[in-house]
Design a protein around this nucleic acid. Structure first.
Length: 576
DNA sequence: GCCGTTTTCGGCCCGACTGTTTTCAGTCG
């Protein structure tokens, strides 16, 4: 059983226990434990096999450690099965209805025996919900309205899509004179791979005008709530935007607060409390005197400084060790887009790309790159007209000719994205692969194989002397396809041992490796290459998304091979 | 359920908004 499954079991425990009215702090402990395990680089199962003490992990106590052991050894959790017998999992569907939380949903389940959204709808239409204590006509109507969008609710969109909406909003507010300063916060600002909603903070003397302005935004379908300092609206596809009006002296505190993450803020506020301070979205307050005294809040740096902490990069605010790093003066100097000098994964018209070698090279040059690798598919990917040995060699000959004509300041590497076959082994022979400058190994077929099979295939490829890097190592597509079953710890060990490289694929639907794997690779000093996997000229512009993910994994330019100069990169892969 | 350089018991981040209420609970972020 892998960490993800353990984490899901603990999360489910908490969700169902909430319906039984369990203590809120106990639920938080479960959820915290679940998060910690999900983000853990080592596999819990391995730690148990090695007799390691799980309670050494922050957030895991005796009880959770025992549950982990039970899950790993028996594949299930007796207590969870008992709870499931009392509270059917289907009740969790009710939580997708906006404004319906665990307390109210539990009441609906306990008093009206409602277990599904269909039953909930019927009860609302029969007027039974309004009769419950604490409910009323309005709540009943809100639930009915919410059922309409429950299917779409909680759907997270790609960071790139959220970015497009954010840019539209930023543009839209340029015509609003009352805006003195506008910033986006939330998971969008932290660069999370998917975003659930957008948070806008605005410094203004005229909150009403600013909130009125938002209601004029073309894509709005509903104003969910509006008060003196806050307005929430829903856009098409149920995407929510929250706008908050913030005074100047509190802007930094609000930006810090609404950027999160929640876990990062809990840690920060806990530290503040022990230091005799209180932090909220209005500022930092000294609570030691008779009357609370405002001591900071205008900038984020001021807020953090009250606790002797640096202004963490938003991408690192996930409570995954950033506070400890700050204390040890070990926060990384994060990579930036401008550090990237090469792009080592792209396709051309020879397979499923839309442009020629020359066109891709010209576009890359225009974007300031100094080198690229052309990495068309190999023959197994017949759908994309993948290259056999003969066509690959012809393409490489052409690249040689183009390079000979160039001034040497921009270089094209002869590459291939060679498939790792279902039965193991590479799609092209060693005799062909040895003639390439740069070989990416990738799985496109047989993605549903067992963990052992997939892991063996990847390790086999990594051990091939001609392979340089593994492309999109887990094969996931965000919101569409789960990663394949793979033992990433074993893969990383093989990569490390064979001095190979792991790709961070920058395509916004892939972002593969994920942030936790990136951090795990960095901890093992495994070099990363951030590639666009471009199939067109515009495809080269997705590099920025890969950079966000890399920053979330704590990478610096020294950790990323395509930040190297052309000369250094040539040396790295043994080209003269 | 987890945690501890005042603690092995008694805390656990904090506030806006809404609806159902006569002072607060639930939801959300």
């Amino acid at each position: 059983m892998d960490n993800n499954k353990i984490a899901k079991s603990l999360e489910l425990m908490a969700d169902l226990m909430e319906f039984q009215g369990a203590n809120a702090f106990r639920l938080r402990a479960y959820r915290n434990g679940s998060r910690v395990i999900r983000d853990l680089p080592e596999q819990i199962a391995d730690m148990i096999a090695n007799d390691q003490d799980l309670t050494q992990i922050d957030g895991i106590g005796k009880s959770t450690a025992e549950k982990c052991k039970e899950l790993v050894e028996t594949g299930q959790l007796k207590k969870l099965e008992e709870i499931k017998a009392e509270v059917p999992e289907s009740v969790l569907g009710m939580l997708r209805v906006p404004n319906l939380g665990a307390k109210k949903a539990a009441k609906l389940f306990n008093e009206l025996n409602i277990e599904t959204l269909d039953q909930l709808k019927a009860a609302c239409e029969a007027g039974e919900v309004a009769k419950l204590d604490g409910f009323g006509e309005k709540t009943q109507q809100i639930i009915l309205d919410g059922l309409e969008i429950a299917a779409d609710a909680n759907k997270r969109i790609y960071w790139s899509e959220a970015d497009a909406i954010a840019n539209q909003l930023r543009e839209f507010f340029k015509s609003c004179k009352a805006v003195k300063r506008l910033e986006f916060a939330g998971s969008y600002r932290r660069g999370k791979e998917t975003v659930g909603d957008l948070d806008i903070l605005i410094d203004t003397d005229d909150g009403e005008t600013v909130m009125d302005h938002l209601t004029e935004f073309p894509d709005i379908t509903k104003v969910i709530a509006r008060g003196e300092t806050k307005i929430s609206v829903r856009l098409e596809q149920s995407f929510q935007v929250d706008l908050r009006v913030v005074p100047k002296k509190s802007f930094g505190a609000a930006l810090q607060y609404f950027t999160g993450s929640k876990e990062h803020n809990v840690e920060l506020r806990g530290r503040a409390k022990s230091a005799g301070l209180r932090i909220n979205e209005y500022g930092v307050y000294d609570t030691s005197g008779k009357k609370e005294k405002y001591i900071a809040g205008e900038t984020e740096a001021d807020v953090y400084a009250t606790l002797g902490l640096p202004e963490f990069a938003p991408e690192l605010r996930e409570q995954r060790g950033e506070f400890e790093m700050a204390e040890n003066d070990a926060l990384p100097d994060l990579i930036e887009l401008s550090h990237i000098r090469g792009d080592l994964h792209m396709h051309t018209t020879a397979t499923d790309g839309k442009y020629s070698i020359e066109e891709m090279a010209a576009a890359a040059k225009e974007r300031g790159l100094k080198y690229i690798a052309i990495t068309d598919h190999s023959k197994r990917v017949a759908m994309a007209n993948g290259l056999d040995g003969k066509r690959a060699k012809a393409q490489w000959k052409k690249i040689d000719e183009i390079n000979e004509q160039s001034d040497g300041k921009f270089w094209i590497f002869k590459g291939i994205e060679c498939d790792i076959l279902e039965a193991g082994g590479m799609d092209l022979s060693d005799k062909i692969l040895e003639q390439a400058d740069w070989v990416l190994a990738a799985i496109h077929y047989g993605q549903n194989q067992s963990r052992e099979q997939i892991t063996d295939r990847l390790i086999g490829a990594i051990e091939n002397p001609h392979v340089d890097a593994v492309a999109h190592p887990t094969g996931r597509l965000l919101n569409r396809r789960e990663p394949y079953e793979v033992d990433m710890s074993a893969v990383m060990s093989a990569v490390k041992e064979n001095n190979k490289i792991l790709e961070l694929n920058a395509n916004p639907a892939r972002l593969d490796l994920n942030d936790v794997h990136v951090a795990q690779a960095k901890a093992q000093k495994i070099p990363i290459v951030i590639n666009t996997d471009a199939h067109s000229i515009n495809g080269l512009d997705v590099m920025q998304y890969g950079i966000k993910q890399a920053r979330r994994g704590g990478l610096t330019k020294a950790d990323v091979v395509n930040c190297a100069t052309l000369a250094k990169f040539k040396k790295l892969i043994g080209i003269n």
